[in-house]
Simulated assay, not measured.
Amino acid sequence: MKILKLSFITLLFLLAAAAIVLTVVYKGKDKEKKDLTDKERKATTGQYIKLSQGITHYQLTGPDTGKVVILIHGFSVPYFIWDGTYEYLVKKGFKVLRYDMYGRGYSDRPDVVYNQDLYNNQLLELIKQLHLKTPVSIAGVSFGGGVVVNFTCKHPDLVSKAIMIDPIYLNMKPAAPTFYLHYYEATHGDERANGQLSDFKYPKRHPDWVNQYLVQMQYEGFRNALISTMFNYNYIAKESLSCLNSVHKPVLLIWGKEDHTVPFTYSDSVRSVLKVDFFPVDDAAHLPFIEQPDKVNAKIADFLKI
């Protein structure tokens, strides 16, 4: 009995020690040290608006007479991903809106389920509260492409044209449990930030990309937004694309031929379901509008003008 008791006490001690070590690692590695407050936002550019689920960071520029274009970023890189395209379209006379989705950039990180309704409603409220002239054209990259598809299906009367750039295709739901992902994301923040460079064919050409990305990771709620989205967005590509096809909107599909994030071969799967104007891009990976801006931005503008 003494041996069993000693073994039990030893086991408890080891478990307690392991818990302490894991907690210390978690606290030390976790980048989410700040609350996103009005004081933090004062040092930023762009504009802010209060929506039903919190404050949204956005930028809206261009003449009132210009056609409205909304740019939707991907899974975790906020609206700075559109810098070049935004400036190009404004110069071409479009009225352009870009914004940070909930949980990203300088937008609030509400403690809610990050599902299709949340993202659709954020975009719907922006269109209404900013009094944008509808129908609008919307463009989305990667995860944002899925948002474009689902929003257009749900609100076809508000959308004139849709653009998808290297859009998501497979469901994002992880096999690992949420508690594990929360710990892993907290202790491997640099891995997520540095991993963003894999979206480029030539990552060395973007030396400031990781530092720009890291800024949003210091605010509480970023990690939860990503994980909740993975588990709850439930994007079913064929079903969603079939729905988009049924509302008969002009669709431009752009894809970098050397994309390893969402492989180029998925463009065939998309086109088997959805009628599109297809624009494959040579010498580019997941973000062709950044790596081949002259070609891609000109194509986008031409598509929107027609």
Rank of each mutant, 00 (worst) to 15 (best):
V281K: 05
L130E: 13
L12T: 07
V141S: 15
A193G: 09
S160L: 05
G103R: 12
G93S: 09
K39R: 06
S272I: 04
G144W: 14
A225H: 04
M164E: 04
Y88A: 07
D190K: 08
K295W: 00
F289Y: 15
F151Y: 15
K275C: 00
F200R: 12
P293G: 04
N232K: 02
F143I: 02
K5A: 12
I81D: 13
D64H: 12
A298Y: 01
V215P: 00
P177S: 08
D268T: 06
K305L: 11
V148I: 11
K154T: 11
L130T: 12
K34I: 01
Q196L: 14
L274Y: 13
K67H: 09
G74T: 06
I306P: 02
Y79H: 14
L244A: 11
T178H: 10
S137F: 06
G62R: 01
V68I: 10
L36K: 09
G189T: 09
D38F: 03
S242Q: 12
L253T: 08
F303Q: 01
R41P: 02
Q196R: 08
P135F: 13
F143N: 04
E220D: 10
H57K: 06
E291L: 09
Y202G: 02
V262G: 03
R192I: 11
T178P: 03
D283M: 10
V96H: 00
I300A: 03
A162W: 00
Q212L: 15
E291K: 11
P203S: 13
H248E: 02
I3E: 15
T44G: 01
N224H: 11
V68N: 09
V149R: 04
T61W: 05
I163C: 05
F279M: 07
G28Y: 13
T45L: 08
W82R: 04
P167W: 12
H73M: 05
S142I: 07
I227S: 06
Y213W: 14
E291V: 04
T10F: 15
D294A: 14
V247A: 03
Y26N: 09
E185D: 03
A237P: 00
H57P: 02
F8R: 11
K249M: 03
T152Q: 04
V262P: 00
K299I: 01
L51S: 08
G84I: 08
I227P: 01
D30Q: 05
L244E: 08
G54P: 03
S160Q: 11
G93N: 07
A162F: 02
T261K: 01
K91N: 13
L123G: 05
V147K: 05
D302P: 00
R109N: 06
F94Q: 04
M217I: 06
L6H: 12
Q122W: 05
V262E: 07
A43K: 12
G140Q: 10
A18I: 11
Q196T: 12
E239P: 00
L51E: 05
P288D: 11
K91Q: 14
D100G: 04
T23P: 00
A19T: 12
G66D: 04
S228Q: 06
H155L: 08
G74R: 10
K67C: 00
I72G: 03
K33D: 05
I254H: 03
Y79R: 10
V215Y: 09
K34L: 10
D117L: 12
K33T: 15
S198F: 07
K91G: 14
E185A: 10
Y26P: 00
I290M: 14
V247Q: 02
I165R: 03
E220N: 15
P156N: 04
P156H: 06
F200T: 02
K204T: 10
P110Q: 11
L197Y: 09
D157H: 07
H248L: 02
